[in-house]
Each structure stands twice: as structure tokens, then as C-alpha cells.
Simulated scan of single mutants.
Amino acid sequence: MAPAQTPAPADPQVPLSELRVVSLPEQELLDHVAARVPGFRYVLWDMVGEPVGARADEIDVAVAPYFGGPWLRALPSASRLRLVQLQSTGFDGVPAAIGPDLALTTAGWVHAAGTAELALGLMIAAQREIDRAVLQQHAGVYRRFSTRTLADSRVLVLGVGEIGSAVVDRLVPFEVETTRVASRARTDDRGRVHGVDELPELLPRTDVLVVALPSSGGTDGLVDAALLSRLPDDALVVNVGRGRVVDTAALTDEVVSGRLRCALDVVEPEPLPADHPLYRAPGAIVTPHTGGSCTSYEPRVRRLLVEQLTRLAAGERPLFLQQEGRLAFPPEPA
């Protein structure tokens, strides 16, 4: 009998102390971070062209550009890379693209304020029919009309992460009844969080449904025709999470029929085709994924990157760690 094969040893973990070279995609961002977190060698790399100040195969930590995915094609040249830091909160598709050996961190709260602010703006715009007033204005028409209000509405926020929690914070002074829903039921310092399995019972008592969920195998298509049918007539669906969480065809049918209304910053597909019915349907507002594209983004992402690199330099776990790769992070605090 042939001897049993000895399994190949797993690749050893890499100590955080071996992270020395950090790339950033913009000069202003590099200057800001380098002035505040000494101890690293900083290089300029947009992950499209060649790095400035080092070779790609010398870089340990790469901050990815905010927009677009072409940077993923640069990864094979960065053979020493250990960690990728995103400037976005969403990371759908990235773990599969970068593989299990790289650590991945996201932007967490960087976009929470801007996106929550837009969610509130969409709710107010839809309830008070500001879009109707703007169309009248452009037509040179001054005609008064009565509208719904956000006050006294029953608002269900689906998703209690950074963005969903920021939406709930901003709803407090608006005199609404707020219900929070997450993947599982629990109680936290704000009170009760319902589980998604309770949605069929909660939606009939909902005037405004705010979707603030990321895209994942468990969330894509969650808000389908069956759940939408549970909403009462004239309810408003606001999506500032990911377009794939809501069944676009089912929502379109409900809105075009006039039974539901919607205010969407994210859609699936993105962008919608130019002839898509939602662009012209009464009761629909579509904004071009502008939740995080605002003036609060730059100072907040700078603050986050300083915090992340300060933590790495001290041998600590970074914030918003989605996968550890082969880095030897200390265990999470109990």
C-alpha cells in the first residue's frame, strides 16, 4: 500500500508588522494620510497605471479608487499585496474577485450620513410631491395642491447597519413611528429589532418602506412581488441600499399600476434603460446613485483611512473587516 500523502502545509499568516508599503489612489489623499500616520512608505497608485514611488509587487496595503472596478485587474501585478481597503460601503462581488488570501476592509460609516440624508430627502420629496412642484415650475405653472406628510407615517427601515441606523437617527424629530428589521430578531440599546421573517406581518402596517440592505446571497431579491403585495395601497418604497435587493420588475408593476409609489437611488440594472417605465411613471422618483457622492464623503474617508492605518501600525484589527485573508489579526474583543 502506498504511504498516505502528507497534506501541504497551509500558507503561514503574515504579521501586521510586515505591512510597510501603502498605496493611495490620489495625491491629496496620500498627503493627508502620510502627514498623520508615520511609519509606512506611501506611494501613489490609482490601480490602473503604474505606481509612483514603488513597484506594484512591493505594495502591502492598497486603497482602491472610489469609482469603478477596473482596479481589480491590477491585483495580479501586486503579488505582495495583503489588504485592500475600499472607499465604498458595499462590497458585493469583491471577495470573489480578490480571492480568500487578501484581507478586505470597507468604508463603513463614511457614506452613512450622506446616504441617510438622501433617504430622508427622498421620503420628504415623495410625500410632499416636490417633484410635481418642480415640473409645474418648469412649465410656468403655479397651482396649489394638498399632499401626504412624513409626520405620523409608519416607517419600516429594512437594515440596521451603518446606513440604516443613520436613517433611523434622522427620523427621530419627524414624529414618525419607526420599525427596524434585520436578518434576525434581537434587542439592542435602541430597543426591538424585528427579523426578516416578520416582514409579512409588518408590511401591511407600513406607509414607508426604506431599504438599506447590502447585496448578498441572502438579500438579493428579498423584496419580491409577494412582499410588495403586503404593503398597503399608496405606500412608498425607498431604496438606498442595493438595487438587487428589490425585484425591479415587481416594483415597476406596482408603481405603474398606481398602487405603490417609489423613490430609488439604486436600481437593478443600473442604470435603467432609457425607456424604462419607472422614469415616467407618476409616483416614481429615480436619482442616479448619489447617496455617497456628496461633500461629506472626502473628509470622512480621510478620517477613516487615518484610523485604519493607525490601527494597523499598532497591531490592531481595522474597522469594517470583511475577510481576514492571511493577515495575523488579533482576535476580536469579547
Rank of each mutant, 00 (worst) to 15 (best):
W109R: 14
D220S: 13
G159Q: 05
L104N: 04
M123Y: 06
I285M: 09
P299L: 07
V22L: 08
L44S: 11
D92W: 15
T248P: 01
T149I: 00
D189N: 12
E50R: 14
V240A: 02
A126T: 01
G217H: 10
Q27C: 00
D224F: 05
Q85R: 03
V301N: 10
V246C: 04
D101E: 15
G195F: 12
P271C: 13
P333G: 12
P273Y: 12
R326K: 11
R144L: 13
V22Q: 03
A113D: 15
V61I: 15
A182D: 14
R143D: 14
L156R: 04
R317V: 08
S296N: 06
M1D: 13
L264A: 07
G221W: 09
L44G: 11
D188K: 10
P214N: 09
V84K: 04
L86A: 05
D253C: 05
G69L: 14
E270G: 02
V208Q: 08
A281V: 03
V110T: 14
P282Q: 07
R80G: 10
G218W: 09
D233C: 00
E177N: 12
P100L: 10
Y297C: 07
L213Q: 06
A334C: 02
W71E: 10
V14M: 04
L72M: 08
E177T: 14
R244H: 04
P269I: 13
A314W: 06
D152F: 12
W71N: 04
A64Y: 03
V21Y: 03
L104A: 03
G159E: 10
V196C: 06
L86Y: 03
L228S: 07
M1K: 02
V193P: 01
G241Q: 04
R230V: 01
R186N: 07
A125F: 02
R128G: 01
E162M: 11
A56T: 11
E18P: 00
V94H: 08
G159Y: 09
Q308S: 12
V238Q: 05
P95I: 05
P299K: 10
V43S: 12
A225W: 01
G53R: 07
P9Y: 02
R80Q: 09
L321E: 10
A133P: 05
Q27Y: 04
P200G: 09
R259M: 11
V33Y: 04
F91K: 00
R190E: 10
P65K: 04
A139E: 13
D233V: 06
A249K: 10
D234N: 13
Q136N: 14
V168R: 08
Q13V: 13
V301F: 01
T187Q: 14
E270Q: 11
D57V: 09
L264Q: 03
G68F: 01
P9S: 12
L19C: 03
D275V: 05
A314I: 06
P330S: 11
L199I: 09
G69A: 14
G191T: 13
A10G: 13
V21Q: 11
D152T: 13
D233G: 05
L102P: 11
I59A: 09
S77C: 02
E129M: 14
P214W: 11
L44D: 10
G241H: 03
I59L: 05
L272Q: 09
